[in-house]
């Protein structure tokens, strides 16, 4: 059954992640130090649009860095085992689900530390939060596929960022606009269209990953 295999794989991912304390802790320290460095560079209050842009740039780099390793584990023996036991669709879906959870958690942690070090009043926090969740899940979808591609192409970090930055741009620009509206505290009617696009992009990315990953899988 597909669903049971997917849950199996997702469970395995979480187990591996929690077993290696270093990897989760590493992510946390990475985020905190990046946010702290930017806070030190800024030092005082900054205009809203700069605050917004800086936040999304930090999040972008954190997501790309973290997701680079998501296909590294599959490099040698594990890859063959997975190949024999799971279908490519369930495999990429489990990766996307795991990455989505990871990214959403990371983005919330980033938001927490970022607004701790560089305070900013957010007018419509619910809208900001929804944007954050939708965008980071979209990031997870895109980055799962691009990290699979980068892993097949000898897995270097610069290739990963070069491949994913331009593809992430539509998501990023929509969410920057949305979160600016949220900080300004605009009403929901203004942002409704953009939220819909964000949801549609999420669905599109997952569908594309599902469609294309099987071709990366059999080689």
């Amino acid at each position: 059954m597909q669903i049971t295999k997917i849950t199996q794989l997702v469970k395995k991912e979480f187990l591996l992640e929690f077993r290696q304390k270093a990897s989760l802790g590493g992510i946390l320290i990475y985020i905190v130090s990046t946010v702290f460095v930017s806070a030190l560079c800024v030092k005082s209050t900054i205009p809203v649009y700069v605050w917004n842009a800086l936040f999304w740039i930090i999040l972008l780099f954190a997501s790309v860095t973290i997701s680079t390793k998501s296909f590294m584990k599959e490099a040698r023996g594990m890859g063959l085992f997975n190949y024999l036991h799971y279908s490519p669709r369930s495999f990429i879906l489990s990766k996307i689900i795991f990455n989505m959870v990871l990214m959403v958690v990371i983005s919330i942690i980033t938001l927490f530390f970022y607004s701790l070090f560089i305070p900013q009043i957010i007018g419509n926090f619910t809208l900001f939060f929804i944007t954050l969740v939708l965008t980071s899940s979209g990031f997870a979808g895109v980055l799962s596929l691009t990290s699979a591609i980068a892993a097949k192409a000898n897995n270097n970090f610069s290739l990963m960022s070069i491949l994913s930055f331009p593809v992430l741009m539509p998501l990023l620009l929509i969410s920057i606009r949305l979160s600016k509206q949220a900080i300004d505290g605009l009403s929901w009617g203004v942002s409704y269209n953009f939220l819909l696009i964000l949801v549609a992009l999420n669905i599109l990315v997952i569908m594309l990953a599902n469609l294309l990953f099987p071709y990366l899988w059999n080689d």
């Binding site: 596929l145 691009t146 591609i149 491949l163 331009p166 593809v167 539509p170 294309l212 071709y215």
Partner: peptide, 18 residues
């Protein structure tokens, strides 16, 4: 050929969206 075809399709769709 495989990898670049996959990236080509993915990137093109995202570009059209953009």
């Amino acid at each position: 050929a495989r990898i670049s075809a996959v990236y080509n399709i993915f990137a093109y769709v995202m570009m059209i969206v953009f």
